[in-house]
Design a binder for these strands. Structure first.
Lengths: 128, 128
DNA sequence: GCTTGACCCTCCAGCAACGGGAACCCCCAT
DNA sequence: ATGGGGGTTCCCGTTGCTGGAGGGTCAAGC
């Protein structure tokens, strides 16, 4: 399978696939003409990576997840720990965004949004 | 005022202040020895920027906000539009994170987290 | 007057996770 | 032979800084 076919199957851009190879997440064979050749197992790994990325795991987390996936002797506790840590980061990110959201929402509501220059948003930013 | 004093007053790292100057968000005078000298109005602007950044506005948005702030003839509608657009982005970011959070939470809950290799998290990532 | 330490400066590299684009090779159909 | 659609490498740009090297400056203490 060549790269564009794999891209279609996995939903990952070809650029991304090359990048993942470059940083050692996957390996690919080469055809005599220099083209990358992917095996089914490579496609499988790439799809795995795509889903992990979609869940927000960092590349380094993905590397660890892939290693755990390939390790038949893994302990599910290790996977869970990784996921829980990531989940905690998501939680705190959400909390942070929600706080911004609340403040912004308030300010936006208070703002007349007309042609006059007076603006509570700017006033808040410039306060003190 | 020199840079470390401004850093203390605004809560921004000196590096960040230099960076903001480099990209033209603020300007500073120079002392004869080459040291940056900040006026009270510069400190004020930097504090403004710090609060805008804390609300998640991008640097370019901050540049626009600052311009609006300085423009006595601004229309509050312009500020509001900017804030609303940003708010919409925050909303969608939150939605995206919440979706990840929900999936991950479910998977984490299902995972035994013991020494056995079987793991619903990996199974989900590898599905199909 | 000399050293020491705390400042300040500029410039360069790097982070994450790619995306865009140049410059080039390869293969097949017309 | 020429055109179009693959593929390849390599390098720059993104966002918003942060760290560090290598060097000048200043005030205090001896």
């Amino acid at each position: 399978m060549n790269i564009s076919e794999v891209a279609r199957e996995t939903g990952l851009p070809a650029k991304t696939i090359r990048y993942y190879e470059e940083i050692g997440l996957i390996k690919s064979l080469r055809d005599t003409n220099g083209y990358r050749m992917f095996r089914v197992s490579d496609v499988h790994k790439l799809a795995f990576l795509g889903r992990a990325r979609a869940l927000g795991f960092s590349i380094e987390d993905c590397r660890r997840l892939l290693a755990l996936y390939e390790d038949q002797c893994r302990a599910s506790a290790d996977v869970k720990a990784l996921a829980e840590e990531h989940l905690a980061q998501i939680d705190s990110k959400i909390a942070q965004l929600r706080s911004m959201q609340a403040t912004l929402r308030e300010l936006v509501e208070e703002c007349a949004g007309d042609r006059r220059p007076d603006c509570p948003i700017l006033r808040d930013l410039a306060k003190e």
